[in-house]
Design a protein around this nucleic acid. Structure first.
Lengths: 225, 225
DNA sequence: GCAAAAGTGTTCGGAATACACCCATGA
DNA sequence: TCATGGGTGTATTCCGAACACTTTTGC
């Protein structure tokens, strides 16, 4: 059998929930400019690195981003014609950045609201859509929001983060009940400062784990007992 | 940037629920012999094919298997030292074969119960474990069992298939309720033959779709309405 | 006191499991 | 008619959503 080799690149959809001037915070994705177009940050892998370390490396060099709280594999895109030139297989990643990190970017990188994306290169739009869908799914049955939230937060802020990522409003009261029953969030005992327009100061919460954990593996067909 | 190319292979964990002499049916996985060891079927990709078509091609040539009812991507395994020799990135797949198909194999391929696997080459054992876990998860919130079941079946047989794949007993009564509420299975109106030891003849059911469909996307945090 | 935001309690409905009981067939 | 398996109905339990009501702060 012939030892066919192909070009392998990594591409990352990195999300952050960011304040948009004068309105609710929205889910944004990090893009890099290449000529006229915008692309997902990434590039080819080198000899002795895994795909994951390649993704991290490219996020640092292409976009100036170093603090990714979570990174996981998505599908591989392998259509022979997905990019013109050389046959290139793309291994894609989902990355998340906490909302309180000032994710400074280099000059050729910027954040875009996921509902107002510019035209993207090649199949990168499909990759962003896949990543959004994966994120929405995992918010429901894992603790993945730890990677979108600050280390401490009032529940109303966490509800806004969920709302931005899911695309619909989430009730903070019930969110607390669901997440604390599952042991995902715990009260810190500390109290935050009241907001700009008055109101009762909020209790601060934190995620129990800072690594991905499945919290509701079986929606149906649970094992006995 | 240098145009690094690497060797890309596909590896498939193909499962079938098969009768084991004189006992309950069990989940088995298809392996190929390479020298003394057993491996997952697969190999390098060629110029103009996707990873999926490469996986199908290798299943045919290495294992004589042509009728895979479902095939989906799992993770990419990219540790630089995962195989000695040349640096090889493995894109892995989960495949499923209906239980009533006589999945004939070539001489260097055979089926093994997942709980009694022989020593496997390289990291192939990790890949099988990942595939089992993915299958178990998807049985709970998708219709993926269509690819493990015959085209028509009594519910007791489907419960055995679920039981073999999940590793614990599943009640056929409640399985029918869950799957019919979700529109996953429908009654065919036909009736099967009674078993060897007498008993009432069973109604036959079928899956409504023969493509993967998510049936319970959000375990929690459902959208309003 | 009043507005604003946080927190508590209650009710409701949906969905999955467990289990008792009835039905249809072969010997 | 009896054993064997299939099918139906009911009760229980759990969990998440909705919403009203109370509490605590700033002005």
């Amino acid at each position: 059998m012939s030892d066919t080799t192909v070009r392998v690149e990594v591409l990352s959809s990195v999300f952050q929930v960011r304040d948009l001037a004068g309105s609710e915070p929205v889910l944004q994705v990090l893009l890099t400019r290449s000529g006229d177009e915008w692309s997902l940050p990434g590039g080819p892998i080198v000899e002795r690195e895994t795909l994951g370390s390649a993704a991290v490396r490219w996020l640092g060099t292409r976009a100036g981003l170093t603090r990714v709280a979570h990174l996981e594999q998505l599908s591989v895109f392998s259509d022979p014609d997905r990019v013109p030139d050389e046959r290139t297989v793309a291994s894609t990643f989902l990355g998340l950045v906490p909302s309180d990190i000032a994710a400074e970017t280099v000059s050729d990188a910027d954040w875009f609201a996921v509902d107002q994306l510019p035209p993207l290169a090649y199949d990168h739009r499909d990759i962003v859509d896949l990543a959004r869908h994966r994120l929405a799914g995992k918010l429901s049955y894992t603790n993945i929001a730890f990677a979108l939230a600050p280390s401490q937060f009032p529940m109303s802020e966490l509800a806004e983060i969920y709302g931005a990522a899911l695309g619909y409003a989430v009730d903070s009261t019930n969110l607390l009940r669901v997440l604390s029953r599952r042991g995902v969030v715990v009260a810190t005992g500390t109290v935050g400062r009241t907001g700009g327009k008055g109101g009762r100061p909020p209790a601060l919460f934190a995620f129990a784990d800072s690594r991905l954990r499945v919290t509701d593996e079986f929606a149906a067909l649970r094992p006995p007992m």
